[in-house]
């Protein structure tokens, strides 16, 4: 599993949760504008933005020379929906069942 892309790891971090809240309130912001809300170094904030973008919670949009970040509503809904991890757990279990039984079928 690529942990970097794990949505639940992404939202477990307080700075990243604050970034998501900021963007929920303001629709879209540049990395600089987001970083100005934190005491931490700009590269640290960039790293957080990169993680949030990699797990598709944020999307980037180039407008002129500036890159704006905004929330990916579809992905956020998935996270807000607490049933999704339950569904994924069963999906993984059934994927395993399918692969075990395919091996069994091929050995016969």
């Amino acid at each position: 599993m690529n942990l970097r892309r794990d949505v639940f790891q992404a939202i477990a971090d307080p700075t990243r949760r604050t970034i998501l809240l900021l963007l929920t309130a303001s629709q879209s912001m540049t990395a600089g504008a987001i970083a100005s809300n934190f005491d931490t170094a700009r590269p640290t904030v960039s790293k957080h933005l990169q993680i949030l973008t990699e797990c598709e919670l944020l999307q980037q949009k180039q407008t002129g020379r500036e890159v704006y970040y905004h929330i990916n509503a579809k992905k956020m809904k998935e996270v807000a929906d607490f049933i999704e991890p339950f569904r994924q757990m069963w999906d993984e279990r059934f994927n395993k069942l399918e692969s075990v039984m395919k091996d069994y079928q091929n050995k016969k």
Binding site: L97, E98, V100
Partner: peptide, 26 residues
């Protein structure tokens, strides 16, 4: 919970009724 499998129904049923197979996927 519903799930479609790329397996004949006999094999799907076997996954639940044979200990050795159940052990592997569970």
């Amino acid at each position: 919970i519903t799930r479609e499998f790329d397996l004949p129904v006999e094999l799907l049923f076997k996954a639940y009724t044979e200990a050795g197979l159940l052990e592997q996927w569970m």
